[in-house]
């Protein structure tokens, strides 16, 4: 019975189906909100589904000097690791596999899709992809610092109460802490980390102000330049699921609590909160800013969000 429930979790709720549908719907909502902000009608919410199935129908061309196996395996590896990450993220006290991984593991699993995109791009052998990779890697370095500091702050904050002083990296303990004394962003010391993490999401997902790796105009979609057909469909799906996973991780870290206990209601609540977070972190930035250069991104992330995260770390050490 337990195994059957586990298989059900893997294939349906937090696993394959939910990621596919939830990710694409979230991407559709993001595109629709962006269009509305630019006073235009914008595509329907299920437009990403059309894009996905159209790309499935297209012919897949493998360029001659591409390393064929790596070129074709990269998107699948990225997709599967993204779905495994979404299995580990607890949803208001419900977490199918929470005993198998915690914060550091989730953060490191989230680097696999980025590395898969990089290996796929470099395996395609195109100079545009080469430039795209170098930008993507600098983007990873730039957002890693503030993200890590804010996570350490959360770990220390939750650890002080629940784990008798030693920090804790376990996500279920973080959720339990928020169940006892309210979502984390209401705590004074956590507000800077909240803002820092909110700023990290667009760069991690690669949305407009920081999509320097996949800049359509300058380097023709960077690492994705040589992809067409099914692998490109999977990479676009990865992009959407990454948005879903990052925002639901953000919701779990800052906005979760005891929840209603019924799985379905919790799931919907989590999804709605993810939409709100997507709106505030990705869509607004996409609507009002232009694309930054690579070293401006690095300078931006290593100054403002890092300072905010350090501030919250210090506040936590002062026991606020």
């Amino acid at each position: 019975m337990e195994l059957l429930k586990r298989i059900l979790y893997i294939l349906f709720y937090p696993g394959l189906l939910y990621c596919f549908v939830g990710g694409l719907v979230l991407a559709g909502i993001d595109r629709k909100l962006l269009a509305r902000m630019q006073k235009r009608v914008g595509p329907p919410i299920w437009q990403p589904f059309y894009d996905f199935f159209k790309l499935l129908g297209k012919e897949t061309i493998v360029p001659r000097n591409a390393a064929k196996r790596a070129f074709l395996a990269a998107p699948v590896i990225g997709l599967i690791s993204l779905i495994t990450v979404s299995l580990f993220i607890p949803v208001f006290k419900f977490s199918p596999f929470s005993t198998y991984a915690d914060l550091i593991v989730v953060i490191y699993l989230l680097t696999i899709p980025a590395v898969a995109l990089i290996v796929g791009g470099s395996a395609s052998g195109s100079p545009y992809a080469g430039v795209g990779i170098s930008r993507e890697m600098v983007a990873i370095i730039s957002y890693e610092l503030p993200m890590v500091i804010s996570l350490l702050a959360i770990a220390k904050k939750v650890g002080l109460e629940l784990n008798n002083g030693i920090m804790t990296f376990s996500l279920s303990q973080i959720v339990e802490y928020q169940a006892q004394n309210g979502p984390l962003f209401t705590k004074l010391s956590m507000i800077p980390a909240f803002i820092a993490m909110l700023l990290v999401i667009p760069c991690k997902v690669g949305s407009l102000p920081f999509d320097i790796a996949e800049a359509e105009i300058e380097i023709c979609e960077g690492p994705l330049v040589e992809y067409s057909g099914a692998p490109l469909a999977i990479f676009k799906l990865n992009h959407a699921i990454k948005m879903l996973v990052m925002t639901s991780l953000f919701v779990t870290l800052f906005l979760s609590g005891s929840g209603t206990g019924i799985l379905a209601v919790d799931a919907i609540l989590q999804f709605i909160l993810s939409i709100v977070v997507v709106f505030f972190s990705i869509t607004i930035l996409k609507a009002i800013t232009a694309r930054l250069r690579v070293e401006q991104t690095l300078r931006f992330y290593w100054t403002y969000p890092t300072a905010l995260a350090l501030l919250s770390l210090i506040l936590v050490y002062f026991g606020l």
Binding site: L33, A35, R36, M37, V41, G42, I288
Partner: peptide, 19 residues
């Protein structure tokens, strides 16, 4: 924040697209 006001305002106003 440039254009933030216009963006949010146009979010709730009718889009100016001719159908």
């Amino acid at each position: 924040f440039p254009y933030l006001k216009e963006a949010v305002k146009s979010l709730f106003s009718k889009p100016s697209t001719e159908n």
